[in-house]
Amino acid sequence: MDKDEGQSKANIIMVTDGPAIPNPRERRLINAWSIALTGAILSLLLLCYAGPSSYREALLFLPDGILLTFKLTALAICCAVPLGLLTGLGRISRNRCVNLIASTYVEVIRGIPLLVQVFYIYFALSQFLRIQGVPAAVIAVSICYGAYMGEVFRAGILAIPKGQTEAARSLGFNRFQTMFYVVLPQAWRTILPPVGNECIAMLKDTALVSVIGMPDMMQRARSFASQSYAYFEAYTVVALVYLIITLLLSKIVSVIEARLNYYDRRK
């Protein structure tokens, strides 16, 4: 069983994109993660304190944008994770109707670029529905990532050996109980790293909502660049800030992953 699980896990991690989650068992001081983080922080500090004043101005222009980026990401995670779970369950459902709905949703959404979805929800639907900026951005991002996460949940659930389900069923659990008390708690360990990855990717993709006039981090940088003509400075600063945030988040995901996997560690 252990071998099975290890293998399926490797498969799942292979198919995700997004930043590499640092390996929690990596004990060495110098690794890709620490080099990237110290490098990013040092260059940001160096540029802001020793570089031309426009770097400092660019950084000071960002804070409310950073807040909005976090707000959008947090709201979108809250919507996308349950949506992903539902979609994942729908995709493995035996009910043909539910299965078709979930599968079609995944197929359709995964085939449309997020940028197009943002425009569609904000500008195209505005003739019938007047959705304000923040809700529109959250809806677009959650619908898009719900589909991606659905696949992650599906793969994670399918990775749990069938024996677990059979054992639970023979003990008298119904299908619902089997899923929620036996399969999902175990699947969660394999699902978490790729879901964490998707959340980090989501944070990066919120940069797209600057096209609907949302003053997120990216829009603040563009705005600063357009009034100061300091394009290099503005985009360097915003790239470094994004990098620092995603590196920190990927560390958090790896810590949570390590805590969930403490049985593995003991071996």
């Binding site: 500008f123 505005s126 003739q127 007047r130 304000q132 900026g133 096209v211 609907i212 006039g213 003053p215 829009q219 563009r222 705005s223 009034q227």
Partner: peptide
């Protein structure tokens, strides 16, 4: 508008047509 500092909330779009579409949509 920023220089006039009248306390308006400024929303910047990629092009002015999108801003006007948003105005027509009442947002």
């Amino acid at each position: 508008l920023r220089k006039a500092n009248v306390g308006a909330i400024i929303r910047e779009y990629d092009d002015v047509g999108l801003a006007i579409a948003d105005l027509a949509a009442g947002r």
